[in-house]
Design a protein around this nucleic acid. Structure first.
Lengths: 114, 114
DNA sequence: GAGGATGCCTAGAAAGCCGACATATATACA
DNA sequence: TGTATATATGTCGGCTTTCTAGGCATCCTC
């Protein structure tokens, strides 16, 4: 029974992808791996979320794609952050931090009202 | 043009509602106000999000509703946290904190790779 | 040759949020 | 008296995002 499936990404996936790509242009598979590594296995980016997100971000002009050879010598689609993507990402990060603060305010509010 | 509408709640609404109700059983309108106050106007809970969420949480047995008179002497539907709701909320809060940590790990990762 | 890792993709369903709308009462004010 | 505003609840349709579950292809190792 039980089966308490926890949703992991909650609308942060786009921002996380932009950030990883800002660190270093990468292909989808590597982006997912890096997110999992950096987050110490908290994020498990499913391919059914990853690739639609990449196409979305490319459509919006935030990422630019180019086919290249990966480290293993195979064809892979490398995504790079565009200037437009940078202009999107920075405020999004600020907004995320404000969101965290706001949620923290609520969660840390005392349960007893005086 | 411009108009960068930022989505504020991102899947945290349920948890926030549970937390506010854990502080003090309240009706919907007051919950929205309190969230806005505590978060210093960062959260603006829209009615089209709030009431479906309350019904959802009640259907799942996490909240229990009761009609009472509000402070202004009008009929209002007061929601209280159930034991089941408590058992839902606590791990959700822990998970949220882990999510914040994980996102922070990514966002604070250096953009230059050595 | 079988399996696993690497790499890309899509389709369908479910869920959540928002904007807009509808409704009703109490209060304040002109 | 009439009107606007705050209080209070709700629905509906559309949009976006996510997940599950599949498909396809190559390369390497056993």
């Amino acid at each position: 029974m039980g089966e308490a499936k926890i949703e992991l990404l909650r609308g942060t996936l786009d921002m996380l992808i932009l950030k990883v790509v800002a660190m270093c242009p990468s292909h989808g598979y590597a982006i997912a791996q890096r997110l999992q590594q950096i987050s110490k296995d908290f994020f498990q980016v499913h391919q059914g979320s990853l690739y639609p997100a990449l196409h979305r971000l490319e459509d919006r002009g935030w990422l630019q794609a180019e086919w290249k050879n990966s480290e293993t010598g195979r064809e892979a689609k490398f995504y790079a952050l565009t200037k437009k993507g940078r202009r999107q990402m920075d405020p999004e990060v600020v907004n995320w931090e404000r969101l965290c603060d706001a949620v923290g305010q609520v969660l840390r509010a005392p349960e007893e009202e005086s």
